[in-house]
Structure formats: C-alpha cells, structure tokens
Nucleic acid binder design. Structure first.
Lengths: 246, 246
DNA sequence: CGGTTATTAATGGTCTAACCATTATAATGA
DNA sequence: TCATTATAATGGTTAGACCATTAATAACCG
C-alpha cells in the first residue's frame, strides 16, 4: 500500500492516497497507520510534508492522532461531527440563520415522520411510547424540567429518524439538532404552555405513526416544528429589538 | 494582533487565534495574512508548526493559499462548500445506497419546490421557463442528447433551490446531485420515453410554481423524483441479477 | 513473590536552516 | 511601445536534530 507521492502539492497527494485507502476499505476503523517515520519512507517525502497531510486528514475527521508509545494515527469512523462543526462556523459567520435552519428542519422532520409512519414496527412504537411516557413525567414536573423535556423531545425525533431506516435522514437530523440546540436555550420561552403544546404534538405524531398515516404524520410534524420555531423566532426578534442581541 | 502561542499543541493555538480573529471581524474576507516568515515571529513558533496550522485553516475553508510573489493566505468567505465535501465523504464512507439517496432526494426536492412556489418572482419564473425551453430542444434532438437534457434538468432543480432562498437546501441538494449523478449514467434507461415523461413533469412543476401552489408543486416534484428513481433502481436490479454489477 | 517505582524506548511535537518552485513586478532591450 | 528577461517575494519541501508524552519493561524493595 502507498506509493511515492507526486503532484504539485505533495501533501495533497498523500491525503488523497490515505483517504482513498480508507474509502476503499483497505484501511478499517481502528486500524493504525504506521509511524510518521515509516510513512515518510513509503511516500518518499519529508516528515514536515507528511505531517501537513496528517493535519488535513485529522481535520476531515478521518484519523485521530495519539501521543506516546503505541501512539500514532488511528482510522476513525466518520460521523456527522465535522459537518456539524462546519455548519456551526457558517452560522457564526452569519451565512445561515436560525430562520434557515428552522425552515429546513421543518421539511426534514416532515419527511422523516412520513417514512417512520410507513416503516415503524410494533417494537418501534413501543420505544416511542416509552419516550413519550418519560416526556410526560418531565412535563408534569413543571417548568424546571424544561431542559430535560427538550432532551427527551430530541431523543424522540432521533428515534423517528432511525425508524425511517435512512442514514441520510439520521445524519442530517443529528447535525440540525446539534446546531439548533443552542437557540433553544437562548430563545425558547420558558412557559408551561410551550411544554404542554409540545407534548400534545408529540402524542399526536406518535399516534399518526402508529396508525401508519404518513400524510397525517408529516402534516403534524411540520406544524409542530413550525410552531416551535415561531416561538423562538418571535422571542429572538423581541430580544433583538430590546438591544439584547449577541 | 496575535500573541505568542502556548497550549499543548501549538498549531492548534495558532488555528484558534486566527479563527477567532476572523470570526470577530478583526480579519475580513479578502484580507491577506502576513507571509509565513512574519507569522512565525508573531506567534514565536517555527515555520513547520505554523504551516500545520495553515493546513487546518485551509481545510476548514477559512483561508485560501496562493503561490508566488504577493501570494500567501487570504481570508475566504465561508460557503457551504466544506459541508458539501464532508457530506459527500460521509456518503461514500457509510456507503449510502442509491435507494437511500433517492428517497432522501424525494423529500428534499419536494420541500424545495414548495418553498420555491411561495417565493418565486416573475424574474425567477422567466429563468425557469428559459431552462425549460433549453430542455425542450434537447428532448427534440432525441436520445443522443439525453446527457445534455439531464444537465439542464439538474440546472433547473438547482435554480428551484436558489429560489427557495435557503442555503441549507441549495448546498444539500447540490451534494445530492453530485452523488446521485454517477448512478444516472449507469442506470438511467436510455429511452425517449424517459426524457418525454421527465420534460412533461418539469413543465407541470414550473407551472405549479408559477401559480404559487406549494402543495401541488411539492406533490408533483416528489412523484417526479420518485418515478425517475424507480427507473434507476429497477435497472440496477436487472443489471445486478445479470451479474453486471459493480 | 508481589507490588511499586524507575528506566527505557517508541512515537508524536517542535525547531533550525537551508534550498526549490512559482509568480508578480521591475528592468531590459528590440 | 511591447515583448523578454531578471529579480525578489513567497509558498513548498527537505534534512536532521532535540523535546514531550506514554506504554512497556526492568529494577527495586518489602
């Protein structure tokens, strides 16, 4: 494996070769790359150049580097981590707004729930009902448990994504949640009414999923997400107009 | 600006400082960073370490590096480019199947077109009609222009995404197209009937967008994408059963 | 013998100092 | 004036050394 590096920018060639080996399954998650001093020789390059390549691979989320004896680069399973990081940067750079995220989420959750309605097994429904029960407890414990309630809410949405059986939806939804979450804490009104409505929505959605009514489930999910978002967008505007932004 | 670098991994500190300066607006898009040999001194580090930091920033999409006199690191406006790249990597890594991509696309295109129907300006509609006209020409030139037709088809879908005014949709859709495209070439039946149906679908969708009927547009788009996908999945199965896979 | 501590060696992190490759600008000359 | 060539600025690469962290091993001692 690994041939002499050519190309204008050598480190790019090294990146491409290692990335290719990972994507082709020649290197598997958990495998260690040889030590830098070995890789130098295989790629016929210098250590500095090789290390630039490793930095790029690390930043792509493909490897993780450990120190000390038995350390070195280890192949990492790709996750949504880096996508989330990039999205977070875009948000900070104000290229993507809460409104954009919210609108996108509305569509995604709608599609997810429609698929879930078509594919949920009795065991899936059981899991959803269990999460609902947990949410109900937090709801009844009042406003102090709003955070806990929201965590369960997110779990429920992600459970629905898993039920959709489509890895694109699970990945995208996870990224979305990770990036919308900070807004929850900033902009979600801390009122019992919000939790109650939310809980009621979730019950309806699970009910529709159980009955296999994809159209209805999608409709409910979209409206649920939209209402939730509108609360946040409204509060955001209030705070901004009061000069409390940032 | 820029202080001595500390921390366990110095290059990480350099990355953080420069990233922070960009996000805080101390460095603006188009600004040049000082040459590597200057940065070395400011951060009190070596060139190798500094260059590792620059590689990371480049991979994050924050800077772009140019060669030669007046070259160097230039602050880049963040775009959805890196999200697309990382998503593409994730798709390849997780070996997301045509079926999964197709199903996901169905949902996304549906949502996109619904938004487009709500937001299209007369000028947008004009652009869409122009693309339709181009597609019509390729259709009438017969099966030999299928590739050209498909290119216009993709342009039309991406134009719709732009009309949706949501960068999440434009970037996700672009990534989807890039990753589904190879399947078009392998699995799309080369029959005039397919082009005709496709063209007819596009006309209907643009019509619905023009009339502002989001529900209808979404419905049409989903069915359009689904039919298209089913052609491919069907052909894929045929080829696989004949042992022509890969 | 067993457990604790010190030693060693493997490996990534950093530094220095040089040279190569590319490119914009300036100098040159027909 | 315009094309050509030289120059210098700047990133790309190399080589070799030393430092820092860590796991494995050896040494020690009760």
């Amino acid at each position: 494996m690994f041939q002499k590096a050519r190309k204008n920018r050598i480190y790019q060639d090294v990146v491409d070769q290692i990335e290719g080996a990972i994507l082709d399954g020649k290197l598997n998650v958990g495998d260690s790359l040889p030590p830098e001093r070995d890789l130098m020789e295989r790629f016929e390059t210098s250590r500095g150049t090789l290390r630039e390549a490793l930095r790029v691979l690390e930043q792509k989320g493909l490897i993780e580097i450990r120190l000390g004896t038995n350390g070195g680069a280890v192949i990492k399973g790709l996750t949504t981590e880096k996508i989330s990081e990039n999205l977070a940067l875009l948000i900070r750079f104000q290229q993507v707004s809460l409104e954009h995220l919210a609108e996108f989420r509305e569509g995604v959750e709608g599609s997810v729930v429609a698929l879930a309605a078509m594919r949920a097994t009795p065991s899936d429904i059981g899991h959803l009902r269990m999460l609902l029960e947990e949410a109900r407890k937090h709801k009844e414990n009042g406003i102090s448990h709003q955070d806990a309630f929201i965590r369960v809410d997110e779990q429920l949405h992600q459970a629905l994504a898993r039920i959709s059986q489509n890895p694109m939806y699970t990945s995208i939804l996870q990224t979305l949640h990770e990036n919308i979450h900070p807004y929850f804490e900033k902009f979600l009104p801390r009122e019992p009414q919000v939790i109650k409505e939310n809980f009621s929505d979730l019950c309806d959605i699970v009910q529709a999923v159980e009955s296999g009514d994809a159209q209805k489930a999608m409709h409910l999910a979209r409206h649920h997400v939209r209402r939730f978002n509108q609360y946040m967008i409204q509060k955001k505007k209030q705070q901004t107009s009061k000069g409390l932004q940032r």
